Amino acid sequence: MEPVARFRSVVVDCPDPVALAGFYAAVVGGTPRVEEDDWVVLEAPGVPRLAFNRAPGYTPPEWPRADRNAQQFHLDLDAGSTWEEVDAAQERVLALGARPLDLEEGEDKDFRVFADPAGHPFCLCRIARP
């Protein structure tokens, strides 16, 4: 079946698009491009295009609550194949302004959950290698 449209970008609402685009540029690469005062685009090699939109009155999601202002989406980011690599990525995102939400480890859990500076959840995932 012929698709109706092609994927363009993931748009993230936030209070400060320039700051949040800068955070994700430091995490995944690329250079933010301000297109309007309230619209910033980040394109990085191998990453879907991310756009950041100023949302007046923005209220961040509350993870993991589903009863009030639930998470609308989250990003999964590959952080390496070893826990040492994930640990290093964790140190870097925390230094950039991320906040830990769930750092619990377990045999069946290959990710750690953080909030970006605007409060959106994202995961640093350990890539399982065969």
Rank of each mutant, 00 (worst) to 15 (best):
M1K: 10
E2H: 13
P3H: 15
P3R: 10
V4D: 01
V4L: 15
V4P: 05
R6W: 13
S9M: 14
V10E: 02
V11A: 10
V11N: 03
D13I: 06
D13F: 13
C14F: 08
C14D: 01
P15Y: 09
D16W: 05
D16L: 04
P17Q: 00
A19P: 03
L20P: 00
L20E: 00
A21V: 04
A21M: 09
A21W: 02
G22W: 01
Y24Q: 03
A25H: 08
A26R: 06
A26G: 15
A26P: 02
A26F: 11
G30D: 07
G30C: 14
T31Y: 11
T31R: 09
P32F: 02
P32R: 00
V34M: 11
V34S: 06
D37E: 15
D38M: 09
D38V: 10
W39L: 12
V40Y: 02
V40A: 02
V41Q: 08
L42N: 01
L42M: 06
E43K: 08
A44I: 04
P45C: 14
P45I: 10
V47E: 05
V47L: 07
P48S: 12
R49W: 05
A51M: 13
A51N: 05
N53I: 09
N53P: 05
A55C: 15
A55L: 09
G57P: 01
Y58M: 08
P60C: 11
P61I: 03
P61R: 10
W63V: 02
W63P: 01
P64R: 15
P64H: 14
P64C: 15
P64N: 12
P64F: 14
R65E: 07
A66L: 14
A66Y: 12
A66P: 12
D67C: 13
D67P: 04
R68L: 14
Q71H: 13
Q71N: 15
H74Q: 08
H74Y: 09
L75E: 00
D76W: 06
D76N: 13
L77A: 09
D78E: 13
D78F: 11
S81V: 09
T82D: 06
W83G: 04
W83K: 05
W83I: 07
W83E: 03
D87N: 07
A88E: 13
A88V: 07
A88S: 14
A88D: 14
A89E: 03
A89G: 08
A89N: 02
R92D: 05
R92G: 06
R92M: 09
V93N: 00
V93M: 04
A95V: 12
A95C: 15
G97L: 08
G97W: 00
A98M: 07
P100K: 11
P100I: 11
P100Q: 10
L101I: 08
L101W: 04
D102I: 02
L103C: 03
L103T: 03
E105R: 09
E107F: 14
D108T: 07
F111D: 01
F111G: 06
F114T: 02
F114M: 07
A115E: 01
A115I: 03
D116N: 06
P117V: 03
A118S: 13
G119N: 06
H120C: 12
F122T: 00
F122V: 01
C123R: 00
L124Y: 00
C125Q: 08
C125A: 15
C125F: 09
R126G: 03
R126H: 06
R126D: 01
R126I: 11
R129F: 14
R129V: 13
R129E: 10
P130S: 07
P130F: 10
